Simulated scan of single mutants.
Amino acid sequence: MGMAWQCTGLRWPDAQGPPVLGWRRGGAVRVSAQAYGTEFGFRAEGERRCVGARGNVCPVGVVVSGRSTGARCPECARLDRAHSVAADTIADDPRTYRVYLAWFGPGMVKAGITAEEREAARLREQGAVVFSWLGRGPLMACRRTEELLRSALGVPDRIPYARKRAVRGALPGAAERGAEVAEVYGRAVALKGAGWPRSLERLPFEAVDHAGLFGLDGAVEVAWAVTELVAGGAVAGRLVAAAGPDLHLATADGVVVLDTRLMTGWELVAADTRAGVGVPVADIGGGGVQGGLF
């Protein structure tokens, strides 16, 4: 391995500020804030290798698929999952949790849970355009509430990123976005006597809108999504928006969405910001052809 920086992913540490990309080189770590309107460009080198799990380096440095968002070998993926709250493997966590309702686009409201100490970071990491808290309490009470919303109201606990990306370029106005969350919140609260856990404290409805934070107000229609990085392939453009793990880059061929989880495990070097996109993409804007992106 050379000494190029490796990306550790996109994070949203601040409720008001821009996202930051994390970087690691040997024992050194740093972050770079991603400001909208700035030029962005990098090139992948060598092979993509397992990023390890829970802060531990993969003992064998396995080469992993370019299409995987996790960038982990099966053994490290198992280790990472074993300590995940989302995987339902931790039943005795003593922390207080919160249940939320998150909106990603018309007809796309999901329920989820997050540790109260993390505040709304989880919502920003998922790319929730609007959210409201629903309740707070012990982990298992929050889990039961999530299951109740799924079984009684048909509110899912997961929405695929592909669906979120497809609608992001043409969202309805703030009032309409908030109203859809309010409607689901009202139906959820009406379940209070039908299995709502006693230890869950209901929280008042308050729609928090991230469209401005994400740069999605008046955003340009998204045309393409990067499906994988390849050795020698550049990704470059002007950063116009970001949501969850995704960066939206304006290029000569339209707006391209880059899931930064695809960057992990690669050694990355700077590329000319006019280099465009020289990696495989999928058409998510209805253009039907893959144009000049190769």
Score class of each variant (00 low, 15 high):
residue 1 M to V: 10
residue 6 Q to I: 01
residue 8 T to Q: 03
residue 9 G to N: 05
residue 13 P to L: 09
residue 17 G to E: 14
residue 21 L to A: 03
residue 23 W to A: 00
residue 23 W to K: 01
residue 25 R to P: 05
residue 30 R to A: 09
residue 36 Y to W: 03
residue 38 T to C: 08
residue 40 F to I: 00
residue 41 G to R: 07
residue 47 E to N: 05
residue 49 R to A: 12
residue 50 C to L: 05
residue 54 R to T: 06
residue 61 G to P: 10
residue 63 V to T: 10
residue 63 V to F: 02
residue 63 V to E: 13
residue 63 V to N: 04
residue 63 V to D: 08
residue 68 S to Q: 06
residue 77 A to W: 07
residue 86 A to H: 10
residue 86 A to K: 11
residue 94 P to C: 06
residue 98 R to W: 01
residue 98 R to V: 15
residue 100 Y to E: 05
residue 100 Y to A: 05
residue 104 F to I: 05
residue 105 G to R: 04
residue 105 G to V: 05
residue 107 G to T: 09
residue 107 G to Q: 04
residue 110 K to V: 07
residue 111 A to K: 03
residue 115 A to K: 02
residue 119 E to R: 14
residue 120 A to L: 03
residue 122 R to I: 05
residue 124 R to D: 09
residue 124 R to E: 08
residue 125 E to I: 06
residue 127 G to H: 05
residue 128 A to C: 01
residue 131 F to K: 00
residue 135 G to C: 13
residue 137 G to V: 06
residue 140 M to W: 03
residue 141 A to Q: 03
residue 143 R to E: 10
residue 146 E to H: 01
residue 147 E to R: 10
residue 149 L to A: 03
residue 151 S to W: 01
residue 166 A to Y: 00
residue 169 G to D: 02
residue 174 A to F: 00
residue 176 E to Y: 00
residue 176 E to S: 08
residue 177 R to H: 06
residue 177 R to C: 11
residue 179 A to D: 06
residue 180 E to K: 02
residue 183 E to D: 13
residue 190 A to D: 13
residue 192 K to M: 07
residue 194 A to Q: 14
residue 195 G to M: 14
residue 198 R to P: 07
residue 201 E to W: 04
residue 202 R to L: 15
residue 208 V to F: 12
residue 221 E to H: 14
residue 223 A to P: 14
residue 227 T to W: 02
residue 233 G to V: 13
residue 236 A to N: 14
residue 245 P to K: 04
residue 254 G to H: 07
residue 257 V to A: 15
residue 259 D to P: 12
residue 261 R to E: 15
residue 265 G to P: 15
residue 267 E to T: 07
residue 275 A to H: 08
residue 277 V to N: 07
residue 280 P to D: 04
residue 282 A to G: 09
residue 283 D to E: 09
residue 286 G to L: 12
residue 286 G to I: 12
residue 290 Q to N: 11
residue 292 G to W: 02
